[in-house]
Amino acid sequence: MTYFADVAALARKDILLELRSRDTLPAMLLFVVSALVVFHFSLPSDASATASTGLLWIALLFTALLGLGRAFTAEREQRVLDGLVLAPCDRSAIWLAKSLGVLAFLGVAEALALPAYALFFEPVGWELVAAVLLANLGLAAVGTLLAAMAAASRARELLLPLLFLPLVIPVVVGGVGATVVDNPGRYLGFLALYDLIFAILSWASFEYVVAE
């Protein structure tokens, strides 16, 4: 199917770009660890374990924001996005390829963040890992679309957090809930529902965000 061939071609390009410039991923890694260290200093000693869970999710959110802020910078320079939009491929393929890239970056960042969290704060259970993996899908899907929106505006880096944060509040609820509550099934299910709804919505509407 040519659709997936197009996605593969675009994803390949994104990986190549990151390997060349090597700026986004290292920044995300450093940021997430720095954030965790800051949180250690910001939590009073009698803070509960659940408080530190909440802070982990905040760290992950802002690390995602950091990565997403860079998602379309290469396309913005030289207006390459116009070149991609003019190609006969479905515009949603651009979204899918970018989201997969963002997903990969988030995964790598979390591969560092979760062990660091276990080291600094407390052990990481399977529920947290499952919640993080599910949350990644929603964050990448919605974030990529919003990053493209912000890239089309004058305000760019200023706009992305404003658009992003209200939309991902449910992800935080699902993620923290799954980690903290006794039976995480409902929360994991909720995260899956969020992912489904917003991935479909993002996939279908990306066309209108990048083309007139």
């Binding site: 679309l145 929106m149 939309l167 509040i169 449910p170 709804i197 919505l201 509407s205 209108y208």
Partner: peptide, 22 residues
């Protein structure tokens, strides 16, 4: 852009409501 965002808004309403209950 406004239209797409407005559509995301109505999708957010039930999802947020569910989230707040959870």
């Amino acid at each position: 852009l406004s239209a797409v965002y407005a559509l995301f808004g109505v999708a957010l309403i039930p999802v947020s409501f569910l989230a707040i209950r959870l």
